[in-house]
Design a protein around this nucleic acid. Sequence first.
DNA 1: AATAGGCCCAACCGCGACGGT
DNA 2: AACCGTCGCGGTTGGGCCTAT
Length: 274
Amino acid sequence: MGRAPCCEKLGLKRGPWSKEEDDLLINYINKHGHPNWRALPKLAGLLRCGKSCRLRWTNYLRPDIKRGNFTPEEENTIIKLHQVLGNRWSGIAARLPGRTDNEIKNIWHTRLKKRVDDKSQPQETQDIKDQQTMETSKSEENFETRSSEPENSKDNSEEISSPKTNSQIQEHPNTPSSTLSSGDSCSNTTATSASSLADESRDQILLDNLLEVDDNFWSEVLWAPAETNDYNVSDLSLSSLEENYELNSSLNDNWFWDDLFSTANELMLELPAL
DNA sequence: AATAGGCCCAACCGCGACGGT
DNA sequence: AACCGTCGCGGTTGGGCCTAT
């Protein structure tokens, strides 16, 4: 069975926080910090469990939290990061100053996921049609393009929508599990596991490389018009990303996502051992 | 005006990781 | 090495608000 609750629920308040409770929590943390969440509510005079206090503080009361709507830039960043990190909300939040993982998770589930799905859905339908056409007509152009792909590119008949979870990323045949996640299911806290330290470092390097690419690479077809075309990619990733970008400048290409992950693999192969 | 359905978001829950003993 | 307490994470829920009918 599951472990015991983190706190004695009896007599402890749950649900929405009142202004008074917020003030108590803020005042206490401002004075003493939060060295021990479990002991904090008692010391602060709150009838809450430590977990609830921590959540309230980290997701709402922290002074560095940026309230208000997400900007389009922030939303695009989330979408990009999600393609690399999957549902690792804390990792995404770490790259969006002032935003909490909870907030990002919420906006993903309520708006961004749907937006990405909407963008990719018609394309999937088209891809299936394209593939059927290709199978019968053996379009040479497409065949040549595909020939340049890694041999293990997955079959077009498979789903090609963007990855939504870590597990989906892992399951991608072109993506070694050690590349994009620490190998655990998405429910695990990969960012903090001991073995994930190197993985996280590699994630960071991967992100740094991928995110330095001009927005066009990620967004031109999916969700935003191109405004500039000047790459800002240094080093190892340039050739592969440019090649990838050229290859997939239109999402009419069935292998967009395969290429994305192929690129990730290429990058990882060239990374120094960690 | 009533209400059903969807959207949004704060909060809760359960689990795994980590650190101390 | 095993155990235990604590923390942090991702998934899920509940309820208020908004909108369409």
